[in-house]
């Protein structure tokens, strides 16, 4: 079965520490750069539903701008009492300098 990858941004638009939200097939997805590695997670904190866009990214963790709950951008796992529900993560690939995200492809472990 083939999965559809959607081109979202050029790699150059997303320097380390940056994140941008994008809508794909009704999914609100945050695409970000964690120290040179790209990731895609749901753009809604599982704690109190705030968008994660613009949260500080450090050590592979993104901090929710609202209350500071932190999530591992690779696994989606949250930290502490307020991060008990993980974020959904999405498959991402880079092709010809373009970041591509899929809402149906399995996420590599």
């Amino acid at each position: 079965m083939s999965h559809s990858f959607h081109t979202v941004f050029p790699v150059a638009d997303l320097p380390p520490g940056a994140s941008k939200a994008v809508q794909i097939d009704g999914h609100n997805i945050l695409v970000g750069n964690s120290a040179g590695e790209f990731f895609a997670v749901q753009n809604r904190c599982t704690h109190q539903d705030s968008p994660l866009e613009g949260g500080r990214i450090r050590n592979g963790l993104i901090a929710c701008p609202l209350h500071g709950v932190m999530f591992d951008v690779k696994t989606g796992c949250g930290r502490g009492q307020m991060g008990r529900v993980p974020l959904r993560t999405y498959a991402l690939q880079v092709s010809d300098g373009q970041i591509q995200v899929s809402v149906d492809a399995p996420v590599a472990a």
């Binding site: 949260g55 500080r56 450090r58 901090a63 500071g68 932190m70 930290r79 009492q81 307020m82």
Partner: peptide
């Protein structure tokens, strides 16, 4: 801030 350690806001 309920958790010990680093964060950002």
């Amino acid at each position: 801030r309920p958790e010990e350690g680093m964060g950002s806001a």
